[in-house]
Design a protein around this nucleic acid. Sequence first.
DNA 1: CTGAAAGCGCTTACAG
DNA 2: CTGAAAGCGCTTACAG
Lengths: 324, 324
Amino acid sequence: MPVTSADVARAAGVSRATVSYVLNDTPGSSISTATKEHVRATAARLGYAPSAAARALRRGRSDLVVCVLPDWPTGPVVDTVLDLLSDNLAARGLFLLVHHHRSTRPLRELWKAVTPRVVVGLTHFPAEDLRALRQAGIEVVGAGDVDDGGHPGLDPDNQRGLGALQVEHLLDRGHRRIGIATTPEERLREFASLRVDGIRAACAAAGVSEPPVAVVDPTVPATDLARGWGDDGVDAVACYNDEVALAVLAGAREARLDVPGDLAVIGLDDAPAAALADPPLTSVAQPSAAQAHHLAACVEAVLDGTPQPDPPTEPSRVVVRAST
Amino acid sequence: MPVTSADVARAAGVSRATVSYVLNDTPGSSISTATKEHVRATAARLGYAPSAAARALRRGRSDLVVCVLPDWPTGPVVDTVLDLLSDNLAARGLFLLVHHHRSTRPLRELWKAVTPRVVVGLTHFPAEDLRALRQAGIEVVGAGDVDDGGHPGLDPDNQRGLGALQVEHLLDRGHRRIGIATTPEERLREFASLRVDGIRAACAAAGVSEPPVAVVDPTVPATDLARGWGDDGVDAVACYNDEVALAVLAGAREARLDVPGDLAVIGLDDAPAAALADPPLTSVAQPSAAQAHHLAACVEAVLDGTPQPDPPTEPSRVVVRAST
DNA sequence: CTGAAAGCGCTTACAG
DNA sequence: CTGAAAGCGCTTACAG
């Protein structure tokens, strides 16, 4: 049976109010040091832990911020965001809890189990859920469309732009026959198809031939594929991300293709492994630090009731290395 | 002002009890379909969201499981564990929330903000905290010493064994002058020093010379270091993890050292990138799937009140590739 | 089939 | 300086 504050009060021979005052260090209440000591000692002896539910109910708000992440595997960018956010919130006495949302269960169920002060969404919420949350007094940050303060990482235009950036660089380098290496990861399909769209559109705009799309397993060298590209005259590959690019690089190596001579390769994410690849991998870097700061600033603004800050304008950029 | 169930009841012209029965689909209560419809519609119209705090307080338990992760960067192993756990819990109507714990704030504060049904710890908790949690009726899994159901990943002997495994393989390959490449990451210091200990002990036991320790920044090629090892006659390097090993590999490449001819390199984690490296990286794989299943089973056992299952016996093993 | 009432554990004005 | 009391929003036995 859990110990309640009433148990502590009884054991210490004081009232529940006193227990509450002491344990919360309520300012303004002048309770003798001896009593404070005694109450604290009693609480510790009984192993008293306050009921978070009762606290939250009584105070009308919780000290929790829940961040909802999508089902798909997240990388270093998201980690950066969470770290920063967590530190910011800690300074205000709030705790960050992360939920990896699987779409099999409606998010609505989650709010029956926890009522956070703010919800940070790194995934789209159904409009109905958004409305219900805000109705319930829970602030939502980053989960809507971009024009509703949504996270730029979710913006379709932004995703397409990433692919376009890859093509732009390859065209600069003189390549005219571009291939696409996408991910087999089902959960990334939406992103993947947006990026592919961006690549195709950029190719069409430049008047180069429609790029063939290949699915690359990022755990094994894409040797056959690399050979195939060589045979088809494809001399440059735009990859969904750096993991896929690494597999293409390994495949080219096994197929004895020269990179970038026979096949240029460009990744996306600028992961640490990109700089260490053989040859070092050209990649597209997103302004993740700026995005992290912006999200943290959005949460701060919501907590303070001040207007939402403008999104960062820093663009994504190509980090040129030896693979192109 | 948040909408309460009383508001819904008033608007729908029924009692709060009826609202509760309808919205929770309480079995056994036979309420007319028309009434049900009406209540649901009213709740939706008002944007009603139940108070998680009140629910939890009244029912005496929450539907939350909190997993506390350490401050240090976690890799694919932990991701696997969380995915599996999340699915298991969802099947029981529970939600998994993850907290990346920064040691700057005592964990005790967290339990004031949320009272989960079970706490899963992937980091050590102070004994006092453990006691308080259990006292408060919160089950704790995996956060204690190994003999108290702690996670094997935290076991010092296990960590030392990982280093020993690396040495064993390098000795097998005929190397007698072994170097150590460790991580600069401050938060991994505890693990790093355990693994270094394991490597040293194994070298001493085999009668080979004490291995020199170098700190390797995993974001840039460790070129100078690779040259230095060559000069010192070190012909094999045991690395803290695959990230570090990739930097060593890149350094050897820049220094024009042949791997494994001039320098053999062994990593740890068997990350996807290991198989794609040039040359493919020999690494140590931990039985992460087995560990994930075990942790999930421990949580299940706690929820069911059945005895804790035996830990998996599957050992870590060396995955041999071309770098050694 | 529906309503009035108790009570979960806490905090906090208020009276002493 | 301390205690009695109200009330946060919900669920659930119980009476009608």
